[in-house]
């Protein structure tokens, strides 16, 4: 009897304790919100904000390997040196833009065209989709190493194939003229990621638009130009932007395929490799920070320009009046 009442009392206090806690939770929702984003926010301060600010500061100092204590402030000297004295700055920027200029548009075009064909819903499409997509799942290090072998002058597949069909073999990775095309080739091999994004976009275009066009007597070409392409512009924009931002930061492929100088005549010295060399080979951290700030500004301005011009060609669905 006594035991039973004790038990009842115990449960009751348990319930009130629970309700109180719930009330407290509810009243302090904002606090819980803050608690939930706290890990991210702490990470933002430690890994984004402070490093970004400190990097900016470093770019105005002469911080080198032996520097003790506060690195000496030298104003714009690093920047002046980059623009007036550093031959590798221009070289690496040229190489990077050359690489981008071909790889970004070519990837977009391949990815878009293949996605268009795969979207025709004919038999066996799933198999083809997988085959086109699989290379982009290959880890970048593995893909690069595979290409190093694949493009090997004597024992690689490509040259042996060229010999087989009677063409002249190319020294893909050891002649200055062929290095950048090799890098572009490697980047094209991974177009599957963009293709999948295009495919998802294509599948979200409602069928009734095409049906309406067919009733109005539109040909396949009309459907492509007046329906598919306009409705796909947001996806094209997304892929273009990410492609450019990623392309400016190309590093691993070059680091693995070539030596730290970027191969013969430094034909493969891309901008990130120059930044890496200055920091982790020459230990000129201040100078390297200045180089990185310049790359950041280029990417930033380019992004702004693209976003700014995007409302002229990117179709967001609510601006139908512009089209007529």
């Amino acid at each position: 009897m006594a035991q039973a009442s004790l038990k009842a009392k115990h449960t009751q206090s348990d319930v009130t304790w629970k309700t109180r806690l719930q009330e407290w939770w509810f009243r302090n929702r904002a606090l819980i919100g803050f608690a939930f984003i706290f890990p991210w926010f702490a990470g933002f301060i430690i890994f984004d904000l402070l490093p970004f600010v400190y990097n900016l500061y470093l770019s105005f100092t002469d911080y080198q390997i032996g520097t003790r204590g506060v690195p000496p402030w030298i104003g714009f000297e690093n920047y002046i040196e980059i623009f007036t004295d550093d031959k590798l700055f221009g070289k690496s920027m040229y190489n990077t833009v050359y690489y981008l200029g071909f790889s970004v548009p070519l990837r977009l075009i391949f990815a878009f065209l293949i996605a268009l064909i795969l979207n025709l819903r004919v038999r066996g499409m799933e198999l083809y989709r997988t085959l086109f997509y699989v290379p982009s799942v290959v880890p970048l290090v593995a893909a690069t190493v595979i290409f190093a072998g694949f493009l090997n002058t004597r024992y690689g597949f490509l040259n042996q194939f060229l010999v087989l069909i009677g063409a002249t073999p190319v020294r893909w990775l050891s002649s200055p003229d062929a290095i950048k095309p090799s890098l572009i080739l490697l980047s094209l091999w991974g177009f599957g990621g963009q293709m999948i994004i295009f495919l998802a976009g294509l599948q979200s275009i409602p069928d009734d638009l095409y049906e309406a066009a067919a009733i109005d007597g539109g040909t396949g070409w009309h459907r492509l130009i007046y329906i598919t392409v306009p409705l796909m512009t947001p996806t094209i924009f997304f892929n273009l932007l990410l492609g450019l931002i990623g392309g400016f930061q190309i590093f691993e492929q070059v680091f693995i395929l070539l030596d730290t100088n970027g191969g013969p005549l430094q034909a493969g010295l891309v901008y990130m490799l120059h930044v890496y060399n200055k920091a982790f080979r020459d230990f000129e951290f201040g100078y390297s920070a200045a180089l990185s700030v310049i790359l950041f500004l280029i990417i930033f301005v380019l992004t702004l320009m693209l976003v700014y011009t995007s409302n002229r060609w990117v179709f967001y669905g609510d601006a139908q009046d512009d089209e007529t």
């Binding site: 929702r29 904002a30 606090l31 819980i32 919100g33 803050f34 939930f36 984003i37 991210w40 926010f41 933002f44 890994f47 984004d48 402070l50 490093p51 970004f52 400190y54 990097n55 470093l58 931002i245 400016f248 930061q249 990130m272 930044v275 920091a279 951290f285 390297s288 920070a289 990185s292 700030v293 790359l295 950041f296 990417i299 930033f300 992004t303």
Partner: peptide, 28 residues
């Protein structure tokens, strides 16, 4: 969860997505 400044925090989150790793590499 509505909490004060949520949109500002979210704006910061979006901004960090645009921040290339290279400008944080050396200080880190």
């Amino acid at each position: 969860i509505p909490f004060p400044g949520r949109n500002i925090f979210f704006g910061i989150l979006l901004a960090t997505m645009m921040l290339p790793y290279v400008v944080r590499l050396i200080p880190l």
